[in-house]
Amino acid sequence: MAAKASTAKRIKFPSVGWYEEVASITVADQQYQKYGRLNAIVAFKSEDSIIQVNFDVLNIHEIKEIEEDEMRDCDFIIELEADQWKDMLKDIKKNNGASLDWTLNTLDLKYDEPIHRNELEDGFKADLFFRYIPSLQVFFDNASQITTRF
């Protein structure tokens, strides 16, 4: 895969702006479109920061910060410690996409606890993580195209 030019602007992670920037790259990504439709409201949690993103068919929108008790309204949550997010995003930047050790799939299997869950233990919703995991990986791989500051 040819390296894509990254934006010069440094965007703080985690923040609504960071997710909006990656979303705008991803909706135009042909690989993302090829992977097909998805329907999931996902919360990304890094310690106190919880950002909700609506993956709505082929659009990605309604990105906003939410409170802990609003996670129950999300289909699933992906939670990593701040250092783990940082290491994952550094790996993505370095390799122009996650290397094997840092894909969402690997992290979910290798850690003692899965990185994804549904807050109300709804297995049907939690399993959306696996139904859409190729698309979610494209989303995070596109973080290689921006300059992230932590």
């Binding site: 799939n105 297995g123 049907f124 399993d127 696996f130 139904r131 859409y132 995991i133 190729p134």
Partner: peptide, 15 residues
């Protein structure tokens, strides 16, 4: 990795 989501749709229907 590509087969996994296909299996999960069948699981979703089943449950």
């Amino acid at each position: 990795f590509r087969i996994l989501p296909d299996i999960m749709r069948k699981s979703a229907y089943a449950c």
